[in-house]
Design a protein around this nucleic acid. Structure first.
Length: 117
DNA sequence: AAGTTGACTATTT
DNA sequence: AAAATAGCCAACT
């Protein structure tokens, strides 16, 4: 315990989680894209920070958020959860190449704009 | 209440 | 192509 539950999250992060929850199965979004859709002005780092704090929340499909290169962002702070992310994405039908990269041209989420009126 | 922390990205070496 | 740099901000303790 000790982690925020998404519905109780503070406003800024709540918006990020709301966007992430809209990513369809079988597609991915980049951190920068989520930041922009959440109205954060492209501050991609905030999205990464927010997702770290909600990692254990089951309602947010954090696995569908990858970095701008189409790669899973690895970090020692995740203790292997990054590998699990790849497994989850593959289970949704997303393919990784030999360098563990996703073909963003194929899988990137293209939502209608604006997401939030 | 102030310091620490952390899943990014565009640009430059 | 890969590695280093600078700019960004909120939540948690």
């Amino acid at each position: 315990m000790g982690n925020l539950k998404a519905p109780e999250a503070t406003k800024t992060y709540e918006k990020i989680y709301a966007v992430v929850r809209l990513i369809p199965v079988g597609q991915v979004a980049t951190y920068g894209q989520v930041a922009e859709l959440a109205g954060l002005g492209g501050k991609a780092r905030l999205v990464g920070y927010a997702l770290f704090r909600v990692e254990l929340d089951q309602d947010v499909p954090w696995q569908r958020v990858v970095n701008a290169k189409g790669e899973i962002s690895r970090s020692p702070a995740r203790y292997g959860n990054d590998d699990y992310q790849q497994v989850l994405l593959q289970a949704e039908g997303i393919a990784f190449d030999a360098k563990d990269r996703i073909d963003l041209k194929k899988y990137l989420w293209r939502p209608a704009y604006p997401l939030f009126p």
